[in-house]
Amino acid sequence: MKSNIFYSFGKYLGLLGQAFSKPEKLSMYWKETLRQMDGIGVGSVVIVALIAIFMGAVAALQFAYQLNGQLIPMYYIGYIVRDLAIIESAPTITCLVLAGKVGSNIAAEIGGMRQKEHIDAMEIMGINTASYLILPKTIAGLFVIPFLVTLAAVIAILGGYLATVPTGTLSDVDYIRGLRAYFVEYNVLMMYVKAYVFAFILVTVSCFQGYYVKGGSIELGKASTNAVVFSNILILLADYLIAVILTV
């Protein structure tokens, strides 16, 4: 079991080594990167926005319930929702969701290409398939996912507002006062560190699972599931490590 993990990790690093080599033709890679940006980014805006708005709304309502009748001022709701969104929920929950949506899609796409001999066809043409299939997806992910995380943070804060202010739980003055209280810019940096690390993990792990698919549709399904499971585990592990490193 232990040797399997080391073997897979070595294979993963080897694949990344091949993937991050000089492209055959930059214009073709750029075209593919744009296509992937559209797939990963534009295709995920709705689901990310939907999850973020409920994330913020639920967080605001839960804290309003917790703070009700306490000595802590109610404007803290805005402050808590903001920091929760920026530090944790926007990068982590968004990337966990994207691991499910984008990760499984990537693994299925590359795995399908392996099974239908598309990858063999490219190899015979002389194309570095690891590079052509993985590098554009990784660049697209690193470019687009931090945008989605930013969008999720903004929408989560808006969700908190919509759940508390129109319902009379909190006045808009208090919510906005909370949003502006104790703002630490370093937290935004932490959000982007997480966004980039999680984006890299979810794209490359999913590519790895798809690239080495063997067999038929059952194996393809397994690869797709593994892409989501391993991405999620590694994202949560990385979340912990980043929290330890950046908050010490």
Binding site: K25, S27, E117, H118, M125, G126
Partner: peptide, 22 residues
């Protein structure tokens, strides 16, 4: 055996692909 044509590309784009790449 299965032709291995790229599904996301048209017939023309499939044939053009090696020219674009090399």
């Amino acid at each position: 055996q299965g032709s291995a044509l790229f599904d996301s590309m048209t017939v023309e784009e499939n044939v053009r692909f090696p020219l674009d790449m090399f």
